[in-house]
Amino acid sequence: MLTPQETAEIEHELSQYERKRAACIDALKIVQRHRGWVSDEALHDIAELLEMPVDELDAVATFYNLIYRRPVGRHVVHLCDSVSCWLAGSDALAERIRERFGVRVGETDSEGRFTVLPIPCLGCCDRAPAMLVDGNLHVDLDPERLDETLERYG
């Protein structure tokens, strides 16, 4: 069941669009913001609210890389893997995360603390390498700054 809060937020988005179903991406993101990811159950609930077939909603949900259809860790780390960050050493950051936190890109560590995902260019090429942690931007990284930053996310 969607919480009243979630329902209210989704309904607020509806006014923006010509058709109800257009709000489906917003709806998925709202639920994800509250729960970390979109479960099958949540998917059904959203589909019902927006009066669209659940298969259609899942077809949309699975297309976009920022909608998670599987559980994620307490914090989601998006490590930019595009060219400018790569030129600035992003591979070393991925390696560092694996060594220090025991999690490879695309995975969640065993304690469920971090999910590390690759992300295309974050538009910070002048301050590469960059990453997002729970949506917060961190730039000018090197392995040490990476450690410091991640340690702050318990």
Binding site: D55, E56, D58, F63
Partner: peptide
């Protein structure tokens, strides 16, 4: 039909 779709990308 509603229940056959293209998923992922």
């Amino acid at each position: 039909g509603d229940d056959l779709r293209a998923f992922a990308s």
